[in-house]
Structure formats: C-alpha cells, structure tokens
Computed example of a mutant assay.
Amino acid sequence: MYNLLILDIETVPFVQRYEDLDAVWQQLWWDKISKTVPENTTPAEAWQLRAGILAEFGKVVCISTGYFYEDEQKAVCFKMKTLCGDNEKQLLEDFIAIAGKFYQRNRQFEFAGHNIREFDIPYLCRRMLINGVPLPPFLQIHGAKPWDIKMLDTLQWWRFGDFKNYISLHLLANVLNVPTSKTDMDGSMVQEVYYVDKDLKRIAEYCQRDIVVVANVILRFKNLPLLKDTQVTVVT
C-alpha cells in the first residue's frame, strides 16, 4: 500500500446554467443527454443534474491526493495535499507535478481511489486533452488493455468479480464501519457550493475527507487498524 497515490476529484459544469451556453453547445448537450434522462426532463434540468460528471461539459475544481508512509515508530500514517481553484489547467499541471514525483521515485506506483477506473482517471485525462495539457507517461493509457492498467479501485475490490454491482463510497464506508466523509455536504452539493457560495475551502475539506475514507477502506480490506486523526497530515 506504500506504492499507492490515492486521489479524489470534485467537478462542476463548465458554466453554471444551461442558459449560459451558446446555441451550438446547447444542441451538443441535448444530443448527448436526451436519450438517457427521464421523460419530460428539460435540457436545463438535465444540465444541473448531469453536466458536472461529463468531462465534455464539466471541469475539475478540486483534486486531493494522499499516500501512506511509516513514521519513526513504524506506525502507518497518511499524508495528503489538495489542489483547488478556478484555473483548471493550472490544477491539472500541478497534479501532474505531484504524481510525477511518485513516478520518478517508483515507476510501479499505482493510483488508488473509489471508482477511479470509470470516473476520476478518465475524467482527468479527457480534461487534460481539452485544456491542451500533454498526458504524462503514467497516464498514457488510451488504447491499453484493461488488465494492463494498474489502479487500485475500492469499487472493483468490493465487486469481487461481480461487475453488475455498484456501491457508493458512502455506503461502503458505513457497511465497513469506517467514519464517513458525508458530514456538512455531499457530492451533489459541490456545484452549488462552487457557483453560489463560492466556497472552495469547503469543497477542498470535503474532498480531503473522501480520500481519508478511501485510505481507511483500504486498511479495512487489509485487516489493519483505521487511521487516527493524529496519523493524518495535511500539506499546505
């Protein structure tokens, strides 16, 4: 587990309202989404519900990363750093710099997280291409066979080979008796907190709590004690 770089991202639509899109993008949006939303859902309603989770219509506003290490007493500890801001391109470049340090030290390092194989990593890669940010060597995974992509995904772990099952991180934490990150907000609130409250600090704190939950889930799978607050360090 000391080879893992745990991550979580928070995303929002690239504009606040559907009405803020020009006519071309409004049509592109409806062409993309119309067949997958409930009947009688308007394009504007669908935008509020779904735009942030689609990389073509969203953007990254927060990336939290963390890793396990041993202290001088050989106790398992966890260190994390969060990138948060309005400049998505800068966020992506800073994330590449952090991950690049891991890659330089250990070419066998793996990304870890919950549902990162189907969401976080593909989303980051797509937004890098959209922003003109070159994909680093450790994210050159387009066209790769699934078994050649090294990632630790706690959603995949919980499936135990059952690819029909989906479980949220919140539910997984509760069934494994891991303290949850859903306290003052959850993922559905990120869009409002970003555009209405303009509170990036609150989003960053929520994102950080998520990766601590993932870290503890990994420890539960390994039958190891959960992290105490004193074992978690935030790098600013």
Rank of each mutant, 00 (worst) to 15 (best):
Q16I: 01
V234S: 11
I130S: 06
G187I: 06
F95A: 04
T41R: 06
N165W: 00
Q191W: 01
L200N: 10
P137L: 02
I6E: 11
V196Q: 15
K101I: 14
I167W: 01
V217I: 15
T82L: 05
Q208L: 11
K89F: 06
E70W: 02
G100W: 03
H170W: 09
Q73P: 00
T41Q: 05
L28K: 14
K201R: 12
I98P: 05
L124E: 03
R127P: 08
N87E: 12
W30Y: 10
T230L: 11
L152Y: 15
Y195V: 05
I6Y: 08
V37D: 03
F57E: 06
I6W: 06
W25Q: 09
N223D: 13
P38V: 07
R117H: 05
K74S: 12
D162R: 09
F78T: 13
V212D: 07
M1H: 13
L219G: 02
R220E: 14
Q26E: 09
F119T: 01
P137W: 03
R107C: 03
Q90S: 06
M128G: 03
V213L: 13
E72D: 12
W157N: 02
E205L: 12
S181N: 15
Q26L: 04
F160N: 05
I98S: 02
E205I: 11
L91V: 04
F102N: 05
P43T: 14
L91Q: 00
T42I: 03
D210I: 00
L169K: 02
L129N: 02
Y206D: 02
C125A: 15
A215G: 09
E118Q: 12
V175T: 13
I33V: 15
Y166K: 14
I218M: 14
L91W: 01
Y67Q: 10
K228I: 00
